[in-house]
């Protein structure tokens, strides 16, 4: 099972909580918006991904689960 994170950039206002929670995976650009790799979330961060999604104040972070790609 693979986990992927996506950002709805229209909703995102750059709180940066996701990057604070998973700094190993999510970076921030100079304006404070998250840079989310288009790759599977590493297994050791798998527990944090759903938390980042639910903690996002604007509900802009999405988690795709699946075996696709």
């Amino acid at each position: 099972m693979s986990l992927r994170l996506r950002v709805n950039m229209i909703k995102c206002t750059g709180h940066g909580l996701c990057a604070e929670l998973m700094p190993e995976f999510i970076g921030l650009d100079p304006w404070g918006y998250p840079i989310v790799p288009r790759a599977d979330v590493p297994e050791d961060l798998a527990d944090l991904a759903p938390r980042a999604v639910s903690d996002c104040p604007t509900l802009a972070l999405l988690l795709d689960r699946g075996d696709r790609d």
Partner: peptide, 9 residues
Amino acid sequence: GQCGPCIFG
């Protein structure tokens, strides 16, 4: 004017 990276970038 909706997405941050576009608004600032």
